[in-house]
């Protein structure tokens, strides 16, 4: 039994023990006041540490924190959609039949509940889910690359999301419903991340050595660009406009280029980047 298969057995047991009902897990207040409290933890807000952030009043900062959490929940929701689709397409295959498919049933069930949870918050309190702007174009893959790319995408959306979950789930200064959503998400994601890291490591061990130097370099370039692009989701011009900042696109460009934000991205990505280097999917830490 491979390490991932052995782990899948234990994770399935844990998923059964920790199963929860998305329709009864939360008490949803009738409404939330965007300017009355913190929603996204201030130091996690995309423009934190910039002159634009310092120029906002506390009320304006709180309003921005509300739209930032709606954006965070929106793009995690959209990130989970292709994840569910991809996992479903990988069930009951030769490689995944048995305990791994058993666990994928839990994985998909939990991701579906997360989408319901995030969607409920966004629709109820913001009246919308920020739309994603991604278009998937067909591309050619080296042998095994498509599988590895899929599980890298899974790991990126979950690892970055979990960095935020961990910071917010026990914090007493933010809205308690937001803290609870982050905690519920983290508890499931900890299992998903454990499985994803192990399964991807086995795939990488089997595949990377079969690639040519050119194929390996091409994959690493794509992974670097994908990770950088994923960080772009946090800097949404529509969020800045909703928060009352006039130049939404300019604010995005400013923040993405600002040294304080780059330092934050590097710190938040450290664990993920170390894993990718350890599995040889990256050769060095990229500039994010």
């Amino acid at each position: 039994m491979s390490a991932a298969t052995d782990l899948a057995v234990r994770l399935s047991d844990a998923s059964v023990r920790k199963s929860w009902d998305v329709y009864t897990a939360f008490d949803w207040p009738e409404q939330l006041d965007p300017e009355a409290e913190w929603y996204m933890l201030p130091e996690l807000i995309s423009i934190y540490g910039t002159e634009t952030w310092e120029g906002l009043s506390e009320t304006e900062q709180k309003r921005l924190s509300f739209y930032e959490i709606v954006n965070f929940f929106s793009f995690v929701l959209y990130g989970e959609r292709p994840l569910i689709s991809g996992l479903m397409n990988r069930m009951y295959r030769k490689r995944t039949q048995g305990p791994i498919t058993d666990y994928l049933h839990h994985f998909i069930d939990e991701e579906n509940k997360h989408m319901i949870m995030f969607g409920e918050f966004c629709k109820r309190y913001a009246g919308k889910i920020y739309p994603e702007k991604k278009i998937v174009l067909p591309r050619e893959y080296a042998k095994g690359e498509e599988e590895i790319a899929f599980f890298c995408k899974v790991l990126i959306v979950e690892e970055l999301g979990d960095y935020y979950n961990l910071k917010m789930m026990s914090d007493k200064t933010i809205n308690p419903l937001v803290a609870k959503i982050n905690k519920v998400h983290h508890i499931d994601e900890a299992r998903h991340l454990g499985f994803g890291r192990e399964f991807l490591r086995e795939l990488a061990d089997e595949t990377v050595d079969s690639w040519t130097a050119e194929e390996t370099e091409s994959f690493r370039t794509w992974l670097t660009q994908y990770l950088s692009s994923s960080w772009g989701d946090f800097y949404n011009p529509a969020v800045y406009k909703d928060a009352g900042i006039k130049d939404g696109y300019g604010t995005r460009k400013m923040a993405m280029a600002h040294s304080a934000c780059a330092t934050f991205r590097a710190e938040a990505s450290q664990k993920l980047v170390d894993y990718f280097i350890d599995t040889r999917l990256l050769s060095e830490a990229p500039a994010l």
Partner: peptide
């Protein structure tokens, strides 16, 4: 451009 540039490009077009 690659598919990973499209998001940034769409945001520029929106602006």
């Amino acid at each position: 451009l690659s598919s990973l540039d499209i998001v940034e490009f769409i945001l520029f077009i929106e602006d």
